[in-house]
Amino acid sequence: MKTNIPPIAVSSAHPLRFPEHPIAGQAGTSFKHEHLAAIMADGKPKGFFEVHAENYMGAGGPPHRALEVIRQDNPVSLHGVCISIGGPQPLDRDHLARFKSLVERYEPALVSEHLAWSTHETTFFNDLLPLPYTEDALARVCAHIDEVQEAIGRSILLENPSTYVTFRESTMSETGFIRSIARRTGCGLLLDVNNVFVSATNHGYSALDYLADFPLEKVGEIHLAGHAEQTDDEGELLLIDSHDGPVADAVWKLFEIVIRKCGPVPTLIEWDSNIPDWPILKAESTAAQSILDRYAGTSSLDQSHAA
C-alpha cells in the first residue's frame, strides 16, 4: 500500500522558484534564526529544516529573508500549528489563504498540521487541545482536512497528539480514529514518537501496542523531541511534550523500532525552547540520521516518502 502524498507539481506555466532537493531518508531539525550563521558556515550535509507556518505569515522582513537562504540549498517542511483542524467551528479562511501562500512561496517538500484544536469563537489558545474520538468529530476533522487539501492543491500529513486527558464520550481508539481519517481524506501521517511515549506514559498504556496498531504505511514524516517530567495533583508521573531538551533514550528506542518496520522515513528533531547552540541540535539530527542509514533499503512496508 502506498501513501497518497503527491509530488510537487512542476509545469512550464508554474516553474519551481527553488531547487527541488530530495528529502527521502534524511534527518532534519527545526530552523531557528539564531542558528543561520552557524548553519551557513557548516559545509557538511545539513538534511532538511522545518518551520512553523505561523511564524512566516507576514509579507516580508528578516524571517522571510532567512528562510529564503535556507530554502535555496535545503528541503523545507512546513508545519502548521494554528489551523485548528479538530475545532468545532469553520476554518479561518484568511488564515488558510495565508497558509496556501506560504506553500506556493516556498514549495515545501512536506506540509503538515496537528490532530488538535486551538480556537473557540474569537479566542485563540496557545495550546494544541485534544478532542473526543467520536463519529461526529471524525466527520468534522475529515471535512476540515479536505478543505485544507483542496485549498493548497496537495495532501498534508496529520500529526498524532500528545494528550493529558481522555474523553468519556470517545467511541474509538486514537489509532482507529487516525486510520479512518487517512482512509477517508487520503492524507498522510506525521508520526510524533515522543507524543506516543508521552501519551502512553500519562494514560498508562503500552507505547508498543499503540505503534503496532498505528497505520505506519501512511507515515510520511517522523518527529522526535524532548519532554519534561512533572507530577500531577495525585503525585503520579506526568510527562509534558516540552520540546526543550534532547530526545529521551526510551523515545530513541521506539524510533528505531519504527524505522526497522518502515525504513528511512524523513525524521525531524524538534527543539523549540531552551534552544541550544547549533552543534548540539545538529548532533541530535546526526544521531537520527545514523539510525535512518542503518535501515536504508530494509523497509517491509511499500510506501513513498517523497512529497
Rank of each mutant, 00 (worst) to 15 (best):
L131E: 04
L115G: 06
S290W: 05
E68Q: 14
M40V: 14
G58M: 10
E50F: 02
T185K: 02
F49T: 03
K100Y: 09
I5A: 12
L36D: 00
I152C: 10
A288H: 01
S304E: 15
W117N: 03
G204W: 09
K46G: 13
E270C: 02
G43W: 00
S84A: 07
L129G: 01
T134R: 02
L36Y: 02
V198I: 11
F125N: 10
P108T: 15
Y133D: 04
K46Q: 15
D293S: 10
K32M: 11
V198L: 06
L191A: 05
R140P: 08
E68D: 15
E121N: 11
F48P: 03
G28Y: 00
G204L: 07
G235M: 09
F255T: 01
E236Q: 12
F49C: 02
Q303W: 14
D146T: 09
I39W: 01
W117E: 07
V265Y: 00
R154M: 13
Q72R: 15
A307G: 15
I240M: 11
R105L: 14
L16C: 14
D192V: 04
V219F: 09
S180T: 07
R17M: 12
G220E: 15
S300A: 11
E159I: 06
P246F: 09
G204C: 08
L239N: 01
V265L: 05
K253G: 06
D232T: 06
S155T: 11
N126P: 07
D302K: 11
N195R: 00
R154Y: 13
F177I: 03
V165P: 11
F18T: 08
P108E: 13
T119C: 12
K46F: 05
E121F: 09
R168K: 13
Q230E: 11
A225P: 04
T166H: 09
Y295L: 05
T163Y: 02
V103E: 09
R168M: 10
I152E: 08
L115E: 05
P264H: 03
F125G: 10
V198F: 04
Q72T: 15
G61M: 07
Q303M: 15
L138T: 02
M40S: 10
S118A: 13
E50M: 05
G86N: 09
F18A: 04
D146R: 06
A288R: 00
L158V: 10
P6D: 14
Q289A: 01
A296I: 05
F18C: 07
D244P: 01
N4I: 09
I8G: 04
T119Q: 13
G188W: 13
G263S: 07
A53K: 00
H227G: 01
S155A: 15
L224E: 01
F31A: 01
S304Y: 11
K100E: 14
N195D: 08
S273N: 10
K218Y: 13
S77R: 06
S300P: 04
D249Q: 10
L16M: 14
G60D: 13
A24H: 07
P108Q: 13
P161S: 07
G80Y: 03
G176H: 02
G60Q: 04
G28V: 01
G235E: 07
P19Y: 15
D127V: 06
L268R: 01
N55E: 08
D272H: 03
H95V: 06
C142P: 10
D232P: 10
P90D: 10
Y205M: 00
F255W: 00
G245V: 03
